[in-house]
């Protein structure tokens, strides 16, 4: 039986959005869609997406994700169900076991896939290279299952609905070599960048820590809240709470003004649904221009100086 198998992502008892997006991606491949829910009590996690044919509950002892558990469960599911394609989210959890399963079982594999299509029977995946500046179509070895890690937000979530069949699948998982102990929340900051209408967002293009006060002043003058890309937090120049992106905050201001931000996939994940995106970058090929509504190929300091004069 040929099917597309999805492994649901959930965290602390809640299904994550990417699961619904995987369903949309899976539907493009035509085959029946099965969603595996690996959890202590799979029935408590609702999978209510149109287009799902079967929900496979895989009860395990661990309440939270552990990569040995997921690896083992997925290997057993593949052996049992022989799916043609397995789809996981390109998420931190999947990064911890997806490539291991592919290496062990010699599967076709690609990560950060943002486009899927069929060429005859063959799966063709699209992903980016060279820092998001170039796209590539990939093909996979014939006659083997293909495991793909799908970029979050690349596909629209499947609408809710559906009346899938349900089944249970039991696995013996070995004891984990990496064990979940505890969760620590991200630090709470002085400002909440998620509620701002106007974000002035600066990236590594500002070059040095000494440049930051200038943008704090500019933000105040413009009536904007200052946010940043990850490297400025990594460097200790700005607090965590100001970070936009996958490991920071997801924002959707009316206006997102990005100065010196290249538009890495993890940054875009946090801001690409903003109302109006304006990007200033010296590099005309910067990936940020692919999501921007307005773009200026210019030096951010020149533009910032002029903006300061205006306000």
């Amino acid at each position: 039986m040929s099917e597309t198998l999805i492994v649901a992502e959930h965290l602390r008892g809640a299904m994550r959005d990417v699961t619904g997006e995987l369903v949309t991606a899976a539907r493009l491949l035509g085959n029946p869609v099965a969603v595996a829910v690996i959890a202590r009590d799979p029935s408590r996690l609702e999978v209510t997406y149109e287009g799902v044919d079967e929900i496979v509950g895989v009860p395990v002892e661990q309440a939270e994700f552990e990569n040995d558990v997921y690896q083992h469960a997925l290997e057993a599911l593949i052996a049992e169900r022989q799916p043609e394609v397995v789809l996981l989210g390109f998420t931190v959890n999947s990064m911890g076991y997806g490539p291991a399963v592919a290496a062990k079982l010699d599967l076709g594999f690609a990560s950060d896939v943002h486009g899927l299509a069929l060429d005859g029977e063959a799966v063709i995946a699209t992903r980016s290279f060279y820092g998001g500046k170039v796209d590539a179509e990939l093909e996979f070895p014939e006659g083997r299952p293909v495991l793909l890690l799908i970029r979050p937000t690349a596909f629209a979530p499947a609408p809710s609905g559906g009346s899938p069949s349900t089944s249970a699948f039991s696995v013996e998982v070995p004891s984990s070599r990496a064990r979940h102990v505890d969760f620590r929340e991200a630090a709470v900051g002085d400002v909440d960048i998620t509620t701002a209408d106007f974000l002035l967002s600066i990236g590594r293009g500002v070059g040095e820590q000494d440049a930051i006060p200038q943008f704090e002043r500019l933000a105040e003058k413009l009536g904007a809240v200052l946010s940043v890309s990850r490297p400025l937090v990594d460097a200790g120049w700005m607090p965590n709470a100001r970070q936009v992106g996958q490991s920071g905050k997801t924002v959707k201001p009316k206006v997102y003004l990005a100065l010196g931000i290249s538009g890495a996939v993890q940054h875009l994940a946090g801001m690409k649904t903003s109302g109006t995106i304006i990007a200033v970058n010296t590099d005309p090929e910067a990936a940020i221009f692919n999501v921007a509504h307005y773009g200026a190929v210019a030096d951010l300091f020149d533009v910032a100086d002029e903006l300061e004069k205006l306000s």
Binding site: A178, E185, A186, A187, N240, Q243, S247, G248, K249
Partner: peptide, 17 residues
């Protein structure tokens, strides 16, 4: 004992052999 950084900056404290 390591910190595994999840989406949104949530940290999963993990003990690894």
């Amino acid at each position: 004992t390591v910190h595994r950084e999840l989406e949104g900056g949530l940290v999963d404290v993990t003990e690894v052999d």
